[in-house]
Each structure stands twice: as C-alpha cells, then as structure tokens.
Amino acid sequence: MAVTLAGLMAIDIVGELEFIWRILPELGKGLVTTLELTALALTAGLVLAVPTAVVRTYTRGPLNWLFTAYVEVFRGTPLLVQLFVVYYGLPEMGIVFDRFFSAWAALTLNSAAYQSEYIRGAIMSVSEGQLTAARSLGMRPLQAFRWVVLPQALRLALPAWSNEVAYMVKYVSVVYMIALPELFTRGAMIRSRTFKVWSPMISVAVIYLGVVIGITRVMDYVEKRLRIPGLESGHGGREY
C-alpha cells in the first residue's frame, strides 16, 4: 500500500502531459491508418456481403454451399488466424501482398462474412408479398430485388451494421501482429521505445473511445434520418 502511494505521488503530471503532447502526432498517424483500414474493410466488406447474402438467400446447390462455407469459415475462426494465413501463409504459395493490403484483405473477408449475415437476416424479414407484387408489375427478379428488397434490407441491417463499424475500428488493432503501424501498434512501439506504459496506452484508449463514441453518434443520426414509418429496424451485430 505504502509502495503504491509512494508510486502515485512520484508521478510527474506535467511531465507526462508533455510526453503525451509529443507522441500525439505519431498516434495521429496511427489513427489515420486505423480509420483508413476500417473504412476500406467495411465498404469492400459491404460490396462482398450483398451478393453473398443474395446467393445464400435465393439460391440452392453448389454456389450456395460455396458461399455458406465461406461465411462459416470466416465467422468460425479467429481474425488473427485469417490475417496470418493471408500475410504469412499465402507467400509460401507464391502469393505476396504488402502489409496494408494483407490487413485490408483479411479484415474485408472477415467483415463481409458478418455483414452478409446481417443482410441475409434483413432480406428474409422483407415480406415475400412485396416481391410478388413487384413481379406482378412486370419487374424482373433483379429489378424487384434492387428496388424493393434491397432498400428495405439495408435499412433493416443498419443497427447491426453500426455495431460492425464500432467493432471494426477496434478489430483493426490485430494488425499489430504483422507490425502494421495503426493506432495501437504506434502506442505499443512508443511503449517499447520509451519504457512508458501508462501514458501511451491511456492516450490510445482515450482516442479509441472518442472515435467509437463519435461513430455511434453519427450512426444514430443516420438511422434516424433513414427511418421510415412501419419499417422498424432490428438490432444486433456481433455477439460477445
């Protein structure tokens, strides 16, 4: 107890703040990388998720099995394993990507698997009668999907998708394991260089917290703006 108290009193507050001020630009660069990876993985993930959800909802047979296997594998294995396979495993087969691309690829494939599940659930909760009505007007199947089902499904998937954004910001930190300098990696590098733990880690944590709170606010606003009477959005996202 006495040791702890003595330790606390020994903290040079001003010195620590100065230290944090000096490492901020470096952490800022890391944050930019984190946000870049998050945005790229989420958008590419969404682009892959929609066709994946469509195939899994509307088709039977080999194509369905293939996409189902993809989703199961990427939801059922650790992101870290996926990252290592892409960054360390593929080069052994002659396929070499740089760090950033490897990280993006692994995060995208992982996120797409989850996003496709949110969208699939949302597609299935759009009443079949609306699809029938669209077809009875003379719409082709893809038109009916594009103009009737998809706009509703995306809105219904929005709460889960918002969670995915908040998770992804934090998940990106696994790229520390391939030494890609995003926010957490920068903090860890500062720690090993300066032997200081608390200031860099608390700074990193506060930045993450601010970003996640900001994202949550923005997504709440977007959800409110897109709300349509009678189209109650569900809730969800990755479960812990």
């Binding site: 009668g129 009505a133 009875s136 003379g138 082709r140 009737v148 706009p151 509703q152 189209l231």
Partner: peptide, 20 residues
C-alpha cells in the same frame, strides 16, 4: 412473361405495398 405481366394487374389480400 414480364412484358405480359405489365398487361395484367394484380391486387392482393394483404395489399403488399412497398413499405419503404
């Protein structure tokens, strides 16, 4: 059949309006 369906209107018990 899509061309033909343009010529045949259909009204359903549950309306099936597009919710969005």
């Amino acid at each position: 059949i899509n061309k033909a369906r343009e010529r045949i209107g259909m009204v359903f018990q549950d309306f099936n309006l597009f919710t969005h």
